[in-house]
């Protein structure tokens, strides 16, 4: 496949954690290619290293060995500032626990990424409102997270992940804290995001959630494996 079609390319990516004197390997040489516009699910048992991998792909964490190219550019050795810039402009995170700032209402939470990407106040406001409308929360913009249901909070998080029009959405078990009906709703929303052309990486351990993706890859004990473990 032509190089420019690949948005994520991992080669022998390794990651350890230090526990006292011990080096605990978490990722033991990950090879993974994701094409631009793909919707890929990553499955694996708890503790297999899924979140660690997602954080590395989302440039939120560093790794110890191997190569990572994002959008055709080697980002293995980016400094903290460049990583932050990349996260700000190209990547949107969705977490299992929503991770909204509790003191801020929905609107301000959605505005936050645009503050760091330097968008002027007026357009920030407009964009945040539009995004909240898109996830069906136009009448909840001044609610703080505690005044929203889990599903609503996750929709705010989706709006927040999308406001800077990223090329990649990283969703780490986005339905893990939701009942199945709400989970389906969130997945429909992510499918819409994918349909709009954004690359979506989804972590889940529920097969019926993975079915929303075009392709599922499996990780076990820090390595990519063929088929479910």
């Amino acid at each position: 496949m032509p190089h420019s079609d690949v948005i994520i390319s991992l080669r022998d990516v390794q990651k350890h954690y230090e526990k006292g004197d011990m080096r605990i390997p978490v990722l033991r040489g990950i090879d993974l290619d994701i094409k631009r516009g793909e919707f890929v699910a990553i499955m694996g048992q708890s503790g297999s290293g899924k979140s660690t991998l997602m954080n590395i792909i989302g440039c939120l964490d560093k790794f110890d060995g191997g190569r990572y190219a994002f959008d055709g550019r080697d980002v293995s050795n980016l400094d903290g500032n460049a990583q932050a810039r990349l996260r700000s402009l190209k990547i949107g995170f969705i977490f299992q626990s929503f991770n909204l700032i509790p003191q801020m209402n929905a609107l301000r939470n959605v505005e936050l990424p645009m503050i760091y990407s330097g968008r002027p106040r007026e357009s920030r406001h407009r964009m945040a409102k539009a995004m909240l409308g898109m996830v069906g929360l136009e009448d909840r913009i001044d609610h703080i997270p505690a005044q929203l249901s889990g599903g609503q909070q996750q929709r705010v998080a989706i709006a927040r992940a999308l406001v800077n029009n990223p090329s990649l959405i990283v969703a780490d078990e986005p339905t893990g804290s939701l009942d199945s009906q709400t989970g389906e709703l969130i997945m429909k929303q992510l499918t819409k995001v994918h349909k709009a052309g954004t690359t979506v990486l989804l972590v889940t351990h529920e097969p019926h959630i993975a079915e929303y993706a075009q392709r599922t890859v499996y990780i076990s004990d820090g390595k990519m494996v063929k088929g479910a473990a």
Binding site: L60, N81, A84, R87, F93, L100, P113, Y116, S117
Partner: peptide
């Protein structure tokens, strides 16, 4: 701490 993590995840730099 968690708020700081959230801000970083949405693109805040150390300087921010």
């Amino acid at each position: 701490t968690r708020e700081i993590g959230i801000r970083k995840s949405v693109g805040a730099s150390e300087a921010d």
